[in-house]
Design a protein around this nucleic acid. Structure first.
Lengths: 273, 273
DNA sequence: CTTGACCCTCCGGTAGGCGGAGGGTGGAGG
DNA sequence: CCTCCACCCTCCGCCTACCGGAGGGTCAAG
């Protein structure tokens, strides 16, 4: 019913290279059925072909070996399918993101950089419900989804109509991972509630511009605003803020999103000359 | 019109991490405008923001840095767009392939492995127009497309109705790169022509099965046939052959493709018992 | 003058293997 | 029995595109 083959033959059966089979053996993902004691030659069984092919399929889908291992070692079909579905969802998200980036690249190459309307504004200190986390850039989309889902729900429950926003610590940009605070402004006497804390955001001057469109294009506006600030303002310490005037929570399309980007500055610059 | 900023500020402007900027400096992809001689601090210009953002966009699309370099250093818009289009095409191909693999994975998990109809056949030696190349597995699709496009055109021109095929050296499977020969059988007195050579394929016995469906599923049939051969036959040296009974050249859908996979064996096995 | 936030370089590691060196094995032909 | 050649072994380094951290210099505010 099953026959023993050398690694080279197994390679032909599975379309996995010998080097790859060595690697899978070394990490214990797919060990040969037995190993000749005297020569050290690996012997595989033809019964191992299907699992090797499953691994190959999953790798073709860019699934990391750790997840592949989880799939092939899954104790039951439910667990296995769960992991598979997770990965397919992940891939779908990446696909959507790729489409966004392509669109954004196209617009970047065709549209010239427009005039930048920068406004200087003093924002007084205020209190807010806030979710604070150390977030990496990779996971920022999911984090925002869950955080602003929660804050939006709270806003609805308490009848709060303020604009939600977030602050991004410098680390978030320089190290790709840093403190992010999603906030929803409230009255100073608002009671604290579960799952979100109450924080006080400090007053500061800001150079502010509005970003119109999807979040994938943020860097262009950041670049334009930051360049403006570098040229005309004195930068103040403290995190950059974003105010989500119109976002996914309002049932709008990405092209209708409106976001204010607020760059902390020391003071309102005096006109040059 | 442009201001000088530190690496940290530049990081905020471009959403590239400091480590990444170091790296791009080291490989000479994006060097700071100047470097302070005494402190060694990098100073970037705000004028460099757009190119940094272009790089970021391209990296978001998984473009290798070598290609990114080709784009940002392109002498003119034509060259640049050419490279970009190439990459977008590449991505589109990968997307299509991903869809295939997902479909194939689904079928693999739902459909049980069917009965395998193996036929033993002696194939006499024959002469063929042939294209021989060292091909890697990554590029096999494109190679086949161009090779069988050429052979199909020749077949049309000379009124040859034979079935085209290919041989795949062992290396192709064990090392992911090896000699592949695309062939189109011809009469022994056929004249040689440009761009394709005349080769003589040796006679041999083969264990043969037909693969019905898209090429993404080949490994399953290879595994089934190879397992059968390992169990019942004596393997002969020489490359595996594929005969493309119905393929893309016939205007068929992938699900209608018919391919014979021919595994060289020493002799027709005697029934066991 | 100190403090803390920056910045520097250098070294090592990550995933998922590939490439090659140096050397042992196995079976077929002479 | 010898030899040949294809096959197999292990080990080491390399690849991409960075990340993490150590160890140490720099700069501006207080």
């Amino acid at each position: 019913m099953t026959a023993s083959v050398t690694i080279g033959e197994f390679s032909r059966l599975t379309h996995l290279s010998v080097k790859t089979l060595h690697h899978y053996h070394e990490i214990g993902l797919l060990a040969p059925a037995r190993i000749d004691a005297s020569s050290g030659y690996r012997r595989y069984e033809t019964a191992q072909v299907p699992v090797a092919q499953l691994i190959r399929r999953l790798r073709d889908l860019q699934m990391p070996l750790a997840q592949v291992r989880a799939v092939v070692e899954a104790p039951d079909v439910q667990t296995r399918d769960q992991t598979l579905r997770l990965h397919l969802d992940q891939m779908e998200r990446e696909l959507a993101q790729t489409r966004d980036v392509v669109a954004s690249l196209r617009s970047m190459l065709t549209l010239p950089v427009g005039e930048l309307a920068v406004e200087y504004r003093f924002m007084p200190a205020f209190r807010a419900y806030a979710v604070t986390d150390r977030v990496s850039r990779d996971s920022i989309d999911e984090w925002c989804e869950s955080t602003f889902g929660l804050l939006g729900e709270i806003a609805g429950r308490y009848g709060i109509s303020a604009t939600a926003g977030a602050t991004y610590g410098d680390e978030f940009f320089t190290d790709d991972v840093g403190e992010v605070v999603g906030f929803l402004p409230v009255a100073p006497d608002q009671p604290a509630i579960d799952r979100v804390g109450l924080v006080d955001l400090p007053a500061s001057y800001f150079a502010i511009t509005r970003h119109d469109g999807p979040y994938a294009d943020f860097d262009r506006t950041y670049g334009a605003l930051g360049s403006h600030v570098a040229e005309y303002c004195e930068v103040a310490p403290g995190p950059i803020r974003e105010l989500y005037l119109t976002g996914p929570g309002d049932g709008s399309a990405p092209s209708d999103f409106r976001t204010e980007i607020c760059w902390p500055i020391q003071r309102i610059p005096t006109p040059k000359g």
